[in-house]
Computed example of a mutant assay.
Amino acid sequence: MFSTILVPVDGSSASADAFECAVSLAHATGAAVRAMFVVEPFEYDLGGEDDPTRSAARQRGRETLSAVVESATDTDLTVDRDVREGVPYREIVTLARTTADLIVMGTHGPTAKQGLGSTTRRVLDTADTPVLTVPADASIPDDGPDRILVATDGSESASRTADHALELVANVGSAVDVLHVVDETNPALNDSSLPMVELAREGGHDLVEPIRTAARGRDLSVTTAVTCGVPGRVIHSRANDIGAEIIAIGTHGCTTSADQLLGGTAMRVLRQTDRPVLLCR
């Protein structure tokens, strides 16, 4: 399970909400929290570590961390703090690789108004550590999520995400809803001379069954669904209908090309939802 949760903080409202979500997960699972602030590289060499401008930037980082940590609702939680200098996504991924089991971060930083920020996107594309993205104003109950929606297409990325989601569900005692969406935009399904939709539905049941079996093996409350539609839209709608606090989905689906940073379905879910999303490569 998650023993240490890493939270990058940048002064944005989304990162503050991400920190609160991390605190809720830490409270529910017993994990430790480590907050970090990354001072981005300066355009010019400012004369070493003691340069006043560089020192002021590090001080702003410490103040930003303090403001977020001190606002946490769980005042008994001890939070380690790191101020680092470098390219943000690289520093986040590097620190997570050696110290964290989960990264919790805002979907976008202070320079982006909406959508997925460049740092979050790069972290999702390069981190081996699972990532929980948190949009502004999103939250998780103090005792952890009550229900998690796991969307799967049978890809390795989706399977790894499902494993982490089930581990979280097992630790907080919540319910899990497993979903496979038969993509109605697939041209192969338009051939009326073949029972392609029914075959696709049967294949979908084959994909959700291993996750259902794994959940039952942990004595978890689990439901499954296989439906047709546009995957991103259906996942978003299903999460709303069942009241899922977290959506779990792989970063890359079976049809994602090698040069894509994120799969199309993952991107659509991240753009549409107002809920935290758990993703694994």
Rank of each mutant, 00 (worst) to 15 (best):
residue 240 N to R: 14
residue 173 G to R: 00
residue 182 V to M: 04
residue 171 N to S: 14
residue 246 I to N: 06
residue 176 V to N: 08
residue 150 V to R: 03
residue 166 L to Q: 06
residue 213 T to H: 09
residue 233 R to L: 15
residue 185 T to C: 04
residue 182 V to L: 03
residue 164 H to R: 15
residue 182 V to D: 04
residue 209 E to V: 12
residue 167 E to H: 11
residue 191 D to C: 00
residue 192 S to R: 10
residue 151 A to N: 05
residue 152 T to F: 10
residue 247 I to P: 14
residue 231 P to V: 02
residue 144 G to A: 09
residue 150 V to W: 04
residue 230 V to S: 12
residue 210 P to W: 01
residue 176 V to A: 12
residue 173 G to F: 00
residue 164 H to V: 12
residue 208 V to H: 06
residue 145 P to T: 01
residue 190 N to C: 13
residue 141 P to T: 01
residue 215 A to V: 03
residue 154 G to W: 04
residue 179 L to A: 03
residue 231 P to F: 03
residue 157 S to K: 01
residue 184 E to S: 13
residue 246 I to V: 13
residue 159 S to F: 05
residue 237 S to M: 12
residue 232 G to M: 03
residue 226 V to M: 06
residue 233 R to V: 15
residue 167 E to C: 04
residue 146 D to H: 12
residue 228 C to V: 15
residue 135 P to S: 09
residue 195 P to Q: 11
residue 244 A to M: 07
residue 155 S to M: 06
residue 162 A to H: 12
residue 234 V to Y: 08
residue 247 I to W: 10
residue 218 R to M: 14
residue 238 R to N: 13
residue 215 A to I: 02
residue 217 G to Y: 02
residue 170 A to S: 15
residue 226 V to Y: 04
residue 200 A to V: 00
residue 242 I to P: 13
residue 194 L to N: 12
residue 201 R to S: 06
residue 175 A to D: 12
residue 236 H to G: 13
residue 178 V to N: 10
residue 149 L to A: 13
residue 136 A to H: 12
residue 152 T to Y: 08
residue 163 D to H: 11
residue 222 V to I: 08
residue 170 A to C: 06
residue 219 D to V: 01
residue 222 V to G: 09
residue 231 P to D: 05
residue 172 V to A: 00
residue 239 A to D: 10
residue 240 N to Y: 11
residue 227 T to W: 09
residue 225 A to E: 15
residue 210 P to L: 01
residue 179 L to S: 04
residue 161 T to I: 09
residue 226 V to C: 07
residue 203 G to R: 07
residue 138 A to W: 07
residue 151 A to R: 03
residue 153 D to R: 04
residue 173 G to K: 01
residue 174 S to L: 00
residue 202 E to M: 03
residue 161 T to K: 09
residue 215 A to C: 05
residue 217 G to K: 01
residue 192 S to C: 05
residue 218 R to Y: 10
residue 192 S to N: 10
residue 241 D to L: 07
residue 157 S to Q: 05
residue 197 V to M: 14
residue 187 P to V: 00
residue 169 V to I: 11
residue 138 A to G: 09
residue 220 L to H: 02
residue 206 D to F: 00
residue 145 P to R: 01
residue 239 A to C: 13
residue 166 L to A: 05
residue 198 E to I: 01
residue 237 S to Y: 07
residue 220 L to M: 04
residue 165 A to C: 09
residue 138 A to T: 05
residue 172 V to P: 00
residue 200 A to F: 00
residue 205 H to S: 11
residue 146 D to C: 04
residue 230 V to T: 14
residue 139 S to F: 12
residue 208 V to W: 08
residue 168 L to I: 01
residue 213 T to V: 13
residue 190 N to I: 10
residue 226 V to G: 06
residue 204 G to S: 01
residue 208 V to Q: 06
residue 158 A to I: 02
residue 140 I to K: 08
residue 192 S to G: 08
